[in-house]
Design a protein around this nucleic acid. Structure first.
Length: 597
DNA sequence: ACTAAGACTTAGTAGGTCCTCG
DNA sequence: CGAGGACCTACTAAGTCTTAGT
């Protein structure tokens, strides 16, 4: 406590009045404080803050019934729905164009939950979803969204200003000495649950959250948020061992949802920094760990062999840990520890390589992981052993789960868990790829292409995929047209330059000499533009099905990128947009050009 | 030791926004 | 200055890991 900055001393003294005014004072000095916030002391007792004040959540707007001329038909006959039933019907009507509404499970779940909202008369009449006609509702909402797009500038501005006002009022909190941005201060509106992949609960009604469902977390001495008039919070608590401001229990999985701070906040930034520091500690002992698990492949104990092979996959392939999941509650997806026999195939020899393992399974978000990898003979033999006498749907690693694995990892290095390997391998790959791909004499666009390629290598490693953009083919074509046009322009410019040169040779005067110079410059400029376009095309093509954002935001130590930018004189804005710069402010502040991950 | 709950990180997508180019 | 598309952000689902409870 002796070394705390003055303003935290005030807090320690328990003089909340003073610290409160100090908070206010600091708000006005924010730019100054922000520069030094990474150097503030952290709490050592597990508490996350001393002072927390906020205005509570923003609730979803109440339901607005559709106009009476927008009709719902059952079995061809117009039917007026009660407001409760109508609201749920509109959720379905809004999704009519979506694939979801054609899926059996979605329809079944929706219909079951919808019926719960109906009056007994409605329930008696509406017994078959196929006989429901939501078309007018659907058109109504489409028209609404068209109308919104067609609004005048003034109207749009008005909405924008209103949003800004709400943001200013509810979008910030005071945590200790800083005004911080809140990530998600709006409560999730009611609607139909859209799970990803083959989710058994898709289509279920996600119910409206009321103040009575809300738990508020703030400090005792703060101004507590007020529930809307005539309502009560479920609870107001003062738990400074957690970082969330608001929580409620969601009705689909029964899990808790939270309102927390923006990634730019001190509390998230510090945690992020810590994460990369842990990954860097792994760097310094990874050789030892690798030697260890290779050794464990030979263990006489099956559980140790399984642990060692699983760890090898996590390290080599950047697989996720793979917690068990409750069957039937979520989509059937797996990670490393939960791999089943049916998810891998062994080939003693394939495509000229020995001991090949073929992985084919659905991972997080039901994204397919498909990969063929040659492995060490010992790993191969072990896998054969693990698969002996098992059915396809049996666990590959039957003596292993994430808790066992993580306990082991914890013993090898303080703070080590399975996911640290993903962070470590992602970051080290970026660093090494940047080293390999950046050529000093290339121009800035080419260097950025190299950066994107390094980023891409990581995204591929982590299997971060995206659906190819709907407009991909077209935008690619457009770009090609531009390139062709630019090429024509270039040959024209070259021709002009040539004739200007010839002209200058004959005339030998200042004016024609100048003309040559101008033409030369023009050619150069067009060449550069062409190159930029071509680089852009390559970049885009290579990026078709790969999402770079996830790794950039979650796996790559930002200091690597910052250092790279400084080293090659690339403006940081070329790599990180505004949000990203805010999130990584700590790294931009901290890293110099010779930072080594 | 095991399980469930809780807290927090990681993930893809929808849809809005803003920029570019003709 | 309007269309088209790239980019960005909000949203919220789906993971991981820790903690609490038995």
């Amino acid at each position: 406590a002796q070394n705390l900055p003055v303003y935290q001393m005030l807090v320690l003294l328990g003089d909340q009045v003073i610290s409160y005014f100090f908070n206010l004072f600091l708000l006005t000095q924010r730019f100054y404080v922000a520069d030094f916030r990474w150097e503030e002391e952290r709490y050592t007792d597990g508490s996350k803050w001393r002072f927390l004040e906020h205005k509570g959540p923003v609730f979803a707007p109440p339901y607005e019934p559709v106009p009476s001329n927008v009709k719902f038909y059952y079995d061809g006959k117009h039917m007026r729905l009660s407001p409760q039933a109508e609201e749920v019907a509109t959720f379905f009507a809004k999704m009519l164009d979506h694939d979801y509404t054609t899926k059996d499970i979605f329809r079944k779940n929706f219909f079951k939950d919808w019926r719960k909202e109906m009056t007994s008369e409605e329930k008696a009449t509406i017994t078959d979803l196929k006989k429901c006609n939501f078309a007018e509702m659907n058109e109504y909402f489409k028209a609404q969204s068209e109308a919104r797009k067609a609004m005048s500038k003034e109207e749009k501005l008005k909405i924008k200003e209103e949003n800004e006002r709400i943001l200013q009022e509810y979008g910030f909190c005071i945590m200790d000495n800083h005004k911080e941005r809140i990530a998600n201060f709006r409560i999730e509106p009611p609607g139909l649950f859209r799970g990803r992949g083959d989710h058994p609960k898709m289509g279920m009604l996600k119910r409206r959250i009321r103040p009575e469902d809300i738990i508020i977390n703030c400090s005792k001495d703060s101004k507590h948020p007020k529930p809307p008039p005539g309502t009560k919070w479920k609870e107001v608590r003062h738990d400074n061992k957690v970082t969330w401001l608001v929580s409620w229990t969601e009705n689909i999985q029964g899990s808790i949802k939270y309102i927390m701070l923006n990634p730019s906040s001190r509390i998230k930034g510090e945690k992020d920094w810590q994460k990369y520091e842990t990954a860097r500690r792994l760097k310094s002992c990874v050789d030892r760990l690798r030697a260890q698990y290779r050794d464990d492949w030979k263990s006489k104990e099956m559980r140790i062999r399984q642990r060692a092979v699983a760890l090898y996959f996590i390290d080599k392939l950047a697989l996720r840990a793979g917690n068990e999941k409750e069957e039937g509650e979520t989509a059937d997806t797996v990670g490393c520890c939960s791999l089943r026999v049916e998810h891998i195939k062994l080939y003693p020899e394939k495509d000229g390589q020995e001991y090949v393992v073929e992985f084919d399974f659905l991972g997080k978000d039901s994204i397919r992981y498909y990969n063929k990898v040659p492995v060490e003979k010992r790993v191969y033999k072990n896998l054969q052993l693990f698969m002996e006498n098992k059915e396809p749907d049996d666990d590959l690693f039957d003596r292993l789960n994430t808790s066992i694995l993580n306990k082991h990892l914890q013993e090898l290095m303080d703070g080590l868990t399975a996911k640290v390997f993903r962070t470590y391998n992602a970051s080290i790959t970026l660093q090494q790829q940047l080293k390999e791909l950046t050529s000093p004499d290339e121009n800035i666009p080419a260097k950025i292409l190299s950066y994107n390629r390094a980023n891409r290598a990581v995204a591929i490693l982590c299997n971060h995929q995206r659906a190819p953009p709907k407009t991909f083919e077209k935008s690619m074509q457009n770009l090609q047209t531009k390139i062709d046009a630019k090429k024509d322009q270039l040959s024209d410019a070259r021709r002009e330059l040539k004739s200007a040169k010839a002209d200058a040779k004959v005339r030998r005067d200042e004016k024609s000499k100048k003309a040559v110079e101008t033409k030369k410059k023009a050619v150069q400029r067009i060449e550069e533009q062409l190159m930029k376009l071509e680089v852009q095309a390559t970049d885009r093509e290579e990026n078709k099905q790969i999402a770079l954002g996830t790794s950039k935001l979650n796996y790559l130590d930002p200091r690597i990128s910052v250092a790279w930018c400084k080293k090659w004189g690339i403006p940081i804005e070329k790599i990180y947009n505004k949000t990203q710069r805010e999130k990584f402010a700590w790294a931009i502040d901290m890293a110099d050009e010779d930072f080594e991950f």
